[in-house]
Computed example of a mutant assay.
Amino acid sequence: MRRSDLGEFEEVVLLSVAVLTPQAYSVGIAEALEEETGKTVTTGAVHAALQRLEKKGFVNSQMGEATPERGGRRKRLFTVTVAGSRMLHDVRGVRNRLWDRIAPQALPKISFT
């Protein structure tokens, strides 16, 4: 895995696509990321990340059905490709191996209250 293959924001967007499939679309992804992180996430940033991910072959998209709640407009729905799944597993493996190598005294204690 080359680090340039997947940025941090792209990683969480790709993870969100996996979580939200089969209804993964930009607004839903932005809302899910805001809920998870507590930070503002614009749909424009999500759109840009999804376009990069699609160009890299990590997601596919297709137009969903028109819905009355969207005024008859269709959503572009995203799914993770085999290459995207492989990338997520590779990134997870690297992170897990690094976490496993951290000595207990290496990180200051923190409280989650």
Rank of each mutant, 00 (worst) to 15 (best):
E54H: 01
T21Y: 15
L50R: 11
Q23V: 10
R52C: 05
V17P: 04
F58E: 00
T21M: 11
E8L: 13
V19D: 15
P22M: 06
G38H: 07
A49T: 08
A49S: 15
K55T: 15
T43Q: 12
G57V: 09
V27M: 08
V12F: 03
T40G: 09
L53W: 11
G28H: 12
T42C: 01
L53D: 11
V17I: 14
G28Q: 10
G57S: 07
K56R: 15
A32R: 15
S16C: 12
Q23G: 05
K55Y: 08
L33H: 01
A24N: 01
A45K: 06
G38Q: 09
A32V: 06
L15R: 15
S16L: 10
T43D: 09
A49M: 07
A45S: 11
K56N: 12
Q23K: 13
A32C: 09
A30L: 09
V13A: 03
L50S: 10
L50K: 09
E34L: 03
G38D: 10
L20T: 06
A48C: 02
T40W: 08
R52E: 11
T40H: 11
L14K: 09
E11P: 00
V12Q: 07
V19H: 14
T42G: 13
A24D: 00
V41T: 05
E36K: 15
L20S: 09
K39T: 05
F9K: 06
A45V: 01
Q23F: 12
A18S: 15
A24M: 03
A30S: 15
E35C: 10
L20Q: 13
A30G: 06
V12Y: 02
L53P: 08
T40Y: 10
V12W: 01
L15W: 02
F9Q: 04
R52T: 14
K55R: 15
A24V: 03
K56E: 09
E11Q: 11
K56S: 14
E34G: 09
G28Y: 05
T43H: 05
V19Y: 14
K56Y: 14
